[in-house]
């Protein structure tokens, strides 16, 4: 489902991603590990079709990763940075609106988002507006929103950030459920607990200019 061959990336003329090669099949969850600056987020941006690789090939679903391609966009759900939220809609309305845009009913969208919130035991956040969420609650809401839309590939950049230990375990369980349902996941993470919870290859990124993986 995801095929990366000798991909490198350059930003502002400076190399930011050393060559990397790996595959992720449907039903696998690959974890990206590496020190700060090793290019985890950059690689996810390449896989999300937002950044063009400087060299090598990044394929998703058999085609080059390209955000402009509607078929590609239908395949890939990504949480890289904060998702766009409307200040005057509640969380549950965000779930419904995203769902109907994918041809799913508003009620089903609400159920999909609420499943994630309730797994985190924060179902009461459903009627909150974005500005009423704490930092950790905002992260759980962002994860729920990302997992509301249908997809075959899930890209997550440090999804454990700002979550407490118990909720990192819940997150691991939720992502494993997505994997068991057939999704291919690529997760950049510094959390050993999350990496241990996921089934799939570990991809170690080497910091550009450093001999080891850091």
């Amino acid at each position: 489902m995801v095929a990366v061959r000798d991909v490198t990336a350059v930003l502002g003329g400076a190399p930011v991603l050393a060559p990397v090669t790996f595959d992720v099949r449907a039903g696998q969850a690959a974890t990206l590990v590496g020190s700060n600056g090793s290019g985890k987020t950059t690689l996810l941006r390449v896989l999300a079709g937002i950044l063009r690789p400087a060299s090598g090939e990044a394929h998703v679903g058999g085609a080059p990763a390209d955000e402009k391609d509607p078929t590609f966009r239908a395949l890939v759900a990504a949480l890289i940075g904060a998702p766009p939220l409307a200040s005057n809609l509640t969380l549950v309305e965000h779930f419904s609106l995203v769902a109907v845009s994918w041809g799913i009913s508003a009620a089903e969208g609400r159920d999909r988002g609420m499943r994630v919130l309730e797994a985190f035991e924060v179902g009461a956040l459903a009627t909150r507006f974005p500005h009423e969420l704490s930092s950790g609650q905002g992260q759980m809401a962002a994860l729920a929103l990302t997992l509301t839309r249908p997809c075959d590939v899930i890209l997550l950049d440090e999804p454990e950030q700002r979550l407490d230990d118990d909720r990192v375990h819940v997150l691991g369980r939720l992502l494993e459920e997505e994997r068991e349902d057939g999704a291919a996941l690529v997760v950049a993470s510094h959390s050993v607990a999350l990496r241990d919870a996921l089934t799939g290859p570990t991809v170690r990124l080497r910091e550009v200019g450093r001999a080891d993986g850091g």
Binding site: A78, I80, P83, P84, V98, G103, T146, R149
Partner: peptide, 11 residues
């Protein structure tokens, strides 16, 4: 904002 971020809406 949404069209500048990774795809969230299905249109």
């Amino acid at each position: 904002v949404a069209i500048s971020a990774p795809r969230l809406f299905g249109v």
